[in-house]
Design a protein around this nucleic acid. Sequence first.
DNA 1: AGTATGGTTTGACATGCATCAAGCTCGGGT
DNA 2: ACCCGAGCTTGATGCATGTCAAACCATACT
Lengths: 256, 256
Amino acid sequence: MRNTMVEHTNIPIHTLKVSCSNCSLRELCLPVGLSREEMSQLDAVIRQSRRLKRGEYLFRAGEPFKSVFAVRTGFFKTCVGSHDGREQVTGFHMSGELLGLDGISANAHGCDSIALEDSEVCELPFSRMESLGRDIPSLQHHFFRLMSREIVRDQSVMLLLGNMKAEERLAAFLLNLSLRFSTRGFAANDFILRMSREEIGSFLGLKLETVSRTLSRFQANGWITVEHKHIQLVQPTALKELISGCSGNTQQTHAM
Amino acid sequence: MRNTMVEHTNIPIHTLKVSCSNCSLRELCLPVGLSREEMSQLDAVIRQSRRLKRGEYLFRAGEPFKSVFAVRTGFFKTCVGSHDGREQVTGFHMSGELLGLDGISANAHGCDSIALEDSEVCELPFSRMESLGRDIPSLQHHFFRLMSREIVRDQSVMLLLGNMKAEERLAAFLLNLSLRFSTRGFAANDFILRMSREEIGSFLGLKLETVSRTLSRFQANGWITVEHKHIQLVQPTALKELISGCSGNTQQTHAM
DNA sequence: AGTATGGTTTGACATGCATCAAGCTCGGGT
DNA sequence: ACCCGAGCTTGATGCATGTCAAACCATACT
């Protein structure tokens, strides 16, 4: 049932099959119908992948924007900070997802991006992506779609923060993670949280105590099991019922 | 002090000067350095503008996506609905702002867009914008920036919904409106709200009673005056102090 | 192995906002 | 001019979540 490989390496199965010189996004986040010729053009743009250790910053708010990054393996959070101490986690990102799209607007990154475990990313220099997009329309189109998807995701987070109560938020969060894990070839109902209760709380607009209590309540209901960061969804249906009605489209395979 | 023209027509001063056959976005939301030749290409893409009456839908969630729209005059809200009754206003949009970017991702609009007063928009068929972007790199780049800007905006709304309390949200909201009005040539400290208390509440993640009460409290403090939809910021500084610290960058001239 | 440290759980209590309810104001229609 | 309904204000009350605090646990470090 539980994919033991998963919990330590977090490398999606189908990615492991890919043997590529660079870091081939084709299978990951840019699965457009490209010709052999176009693919090699794309490969040429992708700068060598970068490895980050847990806790390391991929980029920081305010830094000049040059590239977007595709997560190859690992797990990231992005957060916007305020002048006083407060910080808001704006998303968690796993393999195949793009980071840094918010930097295009001001030519500077708008948030911090931090690895929550040892990770690997591909760097995509944006100006080269732009010019390549001009040569390969389907690539350009795909890039627009990715940006649009980020906007859709943000809207569903707004719905979550604006309308839902603690239990609904947690349920939506767990189900979203579940869906994204399973899309990547991991077990849907048995996974390791990469982030702390505080980070979950920040993302969901709750305090860490509320997150903890709500998880405990779910467990008491027999809906999930919680052992520290290891979560099992025992009755995913119960969680789905909880949010039936209030989800606009919280159920995306993409980022959250 | 108060721009009386503003309250009924809501047409930015500098737009009125523009006499254009089509509806010239150049001055509005696409102020890129284009050649005369390029400009006429762009004009050719812009389909005739559309007028909407108060309450009319520009598009609905689920409708096939074909175009994005630029607000020329008027005022819009966008909202995502949930299966039960709940709806979340995700933004308010005024002249020069783009609507519908979330539709690119799924080839279907992801939210409803509704005119809050009689309005006029330019329709930009997306596929033609894409191909034009290939010919005019600066236009392509500008379009990427606009999409990125939307993502940045959404992040600051998340910060607002996730971290701030009622008074801070209202203050941030009023100051943001103020900034956007003044950018468009309207009075910064004296304006008419186009939306109801309930819509404000939905956007800010509050109930309408809380919005009402908080406005009353601001007035009692001598910070603002409220006569129905007519708001004056008497001590904008006081509002700024209230959110000093918690604003990531709530202060954008763009949408919110 | 022992100890320190950060993250987590759980409890008791406080509070900000939601909820329920009543009355008010304004604008539109007859 | 009148009435009606929608939107708004204001009050009383309740509840969900935040706050403060203590104890626990697991991992990392000496």
